[in-house]
């Protein structure tokens, strides 16, 4: 379980300080899929970087409760998928290598490492592309490489920062379903940040709604939609529309701009 308590983050800013995260608290249970939705500029990326141990906090705590570890630096239990696949993959390395490099410290034996790379590529339907370069692939495929890299790392927690924001609508729907599938297969705990309310509701077990900057948690909405979810059937449910409206109201009540 991941527990976030009174997380604060300010940046030094022209003499004073810029308060980005004012007070963020929520928990993520083992096996849960939590989506975090908020208006543009709500410090979503800042929040995820704090969760992943990439950015020092100004206050509060982030704890992995199973190990009791306080996240001050990137922990081995967490893998990240970043928004911009074109920047998060290494263009000078082939796809297989991109997936393999993070495993070097985890799996010393080369053969086993390659097996794990192949398995991860299979999980995202990219078998046969290990020897391609990322830039030879389409955007959706590149983001699948980034997902495979995170999966191969065998983390407990997968943290995703708007992972589908840079692809077209159809690819986005495909990638959403891919994540639901691998999450089911691997039993992952996922935290996904998005500005897209539909996506937050469609994917999540719970939606954490954030305010505009300085950011607080407005409310948490439990998504009681049946699984497995489907782009067509789930989104056609009256309950989906209700939840969507509920989240939308929470965001607009806060008076911030909505980009959904």
């Amino acid at each position: 379980m991941l527990s976030v308590e009174h997380l604060k983050k300010s940046y030094p800013h022209s003499g004073g300080s810029l308060e980005v995260l004012r007070d963020i608290s929520f928990t993520v249970e083992a096996g849960e899929f939590v989506t975090i939705v908020g208006p543009s500029g709500a410090g979503k990326t800042t929040l995820l970087r704090c969760l992943a141990g990439l950015l020092p906090r100004s206050g509060g705590s982030v704890t992995l409760t199973t190990s009791g570890r306080v996240v001050d630096s990137p922990p081995p239990e967490i893998a990240c998928v970043f928004q911009d696949y074109s920047r998060s993959l290494m263009p000078w390395s082939k796809v297989g290598r991109n997936v393999e490099i993070p495993l070097k410290n985890k799996i010393r034996e080369r053969g086993k490492r390659h097996e794990q790379v192949e398995r991860a590529l299979r999980e995202v339907d990219l078998d046969g592309f290990a020897d391609s370069y990322p830039w030879q692939l389409s955007g959706g495929m590149q983001q699948r490489v980034a997902i495979a890299r995170a999966l191969a790392y065998r983390p407990e927690f997968l943290i995703m920062d708007e992972p589908f924001a840079s692809v077209d609508a159809q690819t986005r729907a495909d990638l959403e379903d891919l994540i639901l599938r691998v999450r089911h297969d691997a039993g992952l705990t996922i935290v996904l940040v998005t500005h897209d309310i539909d996506e937050a509701v469609y994917l999540g077990d719970r939606v954490v709604v954030m305010s505009g900057r300085p950011t607080t948690v407005v409310d948490t909405v439990t998504v009681d939609l049946p699984r497995p979810r489907s782009q067509i059937a789930t989104k056609a449910l009256p309950r989906f529309a209700e939840l969507r409206t509920e989240v939308l109201k929470l965001i607009t009540r806060d008076g911030a701009e909505v980009t959904a």
Binding site: G53, S73, P74, R87, S88, M90, N105
Partner: peptide
């Protein structure tokens, strides 16, 4: 070196040397 790649190499806990050879050197090539 792109800050996203810096994040990637830190979050996957690459060692200093791995970061030099797999990220910084090729990025600076």
């Amino acid at each position: 070196v792109d800050e996203v790649l810096e994040d990637v190499s830190r979050s996957f806990r690459l060692t200093r040397l791995q970061r030099v050879f797999h990220v910084q050197l090729p990025a600076a090539a």
